[in-house]
Design a protein around this nucleic acid. Structure first.
Lengths: 198, 198
DNA sequence: CGATATATAGACCGATCGGTCCTTAAATCG
DNA sequence: CGATTTAAGGACCGATCGGTCTATATATCG
């Protein structure tokens, strides 16, 4: 970003990335065309390529933004200062809310990208794997704090339970994609929590 | 399919569908091109279009085949005649095996299709939703038999437990996509079973 | 054999893909 | 003011997309 003499940038890079993220999120990488991105970002072809290089680079920025948002949300839900059981409940319930109605139909950019690109695109693969790992660590940490407080059911081991929860929430996003089952999801989450919390 | 006078069909429709399935499975729908399909099926353009109509129709046949295979496998794993707990273990362990090494990288056609197309393509959406429903019913049935045999942990309800297991296995396929974690998956499955079986 | 049916090979189609480039308008600087 | 910089708009590019069609070769029938 250089000194701005002459006409200043009429668009904020951040909001352009955010809008692009929305398109990739709704359609997936391959099904998103340049015209789609231009419409969403309100940029001209020239501006978009000057600012972001190419479609793939812009996608990586959008993916990074999505990941950062998800991690930020998790950090507040599972904050060390908070009651770990409340945090875990909030964390899981958040996924239920995100699979309701229109949101459910939209799915999850991370899951869609994992399935669409992670196998072929190393750059993407690293980001996705890193996210799942980070998520697992945060959940495991919350479970450890719950265990220390004597709130875990007998025989529950934080690290393996964390892996179970991570698989579960990602699976929720898959199963909810074709047709969300609004009422049952929360009950399913409650039943799951019931197996781990005493 | 009409009477075959003259040169007989030099290819079997079934094996062509199976080969096409393999390509869609590895690359996803949008990223699979006609040349990809021709190479895999060893058909000419003309033959492929004469036999299947278009790319989308061929994809639906491939998806149906994948679903039928999955249901067949489940029916043997969770057969009513078999010990339900053994069946559930075999069912879950099957997913662990399918996420190892190269297989894991390949992912799952159903999950990938759910994320890539189920939101936009009603025909596909119905198939995916139907599969998840069928799977849930089969698992719930096995859990019911386990419960009747007094093999379930206290407080476990078959129908909600089935929803949990379905989400878990589909999530396994997502998390395993970017980089399989071979050794831990079985341990994770064991830890999960441990929460439900007494 | 000749008639018929099937599949191959590949030319061909319009549309769209991602990406480059050039002109013009607008805004800020000295 | 004029010089400079930024972005918009859109023409334009080669490549590829899914899909059609026309030979041509081959096999099976009567």
């Amino acid at each position: 970003m250089q000194l701005q003499r002459g006409r200043p940038r009429s668009f904020a890079v951040d909001t352009a990335v955010e809008r692009a993220m929305g398109v990739f999120w709704s359609r997936g990488y391959h099904a998103t065309s340049l015209p789609d991105l231009l419409r969403a970002t309100k940029l001209s072809r020239g501006s978009l390529y000057a600012a972001f290089g190419d479609k793939h680079s812009l996608f990586l920025l959008a993916l990074d933004r999505y990941i950062a948002d998800a991690l930020t949300r998790m950090e507040s839900e599972l904050a060390p200062g908070r009651d770990p059981v409340d945090g875990l409940r909030a964390y899981l319930t958040g996924y239920v809310e995100r699979t309701r109605g229109t949101n459910g139909r939209r799915g999850c950019l991370l899951v869609a990208t994992a399935m669409e690109l992670a196998g072929q695109d190393a750059e993407v693969g690293r980001r996705i794997a890193g996210f799942f790992k980070a998520m697992e660590i945060k959940v495991a940490d919350a479970l450890s704090r719950a265990k220390a407080a004597g709130r875990l059911a007998n025989g529950v081991e934080p690290s393996s339970a964390a892996r179970i929860l991570v698989c579960f929430v990602e699976g929720l996003r898959v199963v909810a994609k074709p047709g969300p089952t609004p009422t049952t999801s929360q009950a399913t989450v409650d039943a799951l929590i019931d197996r781990f919390i005493s």
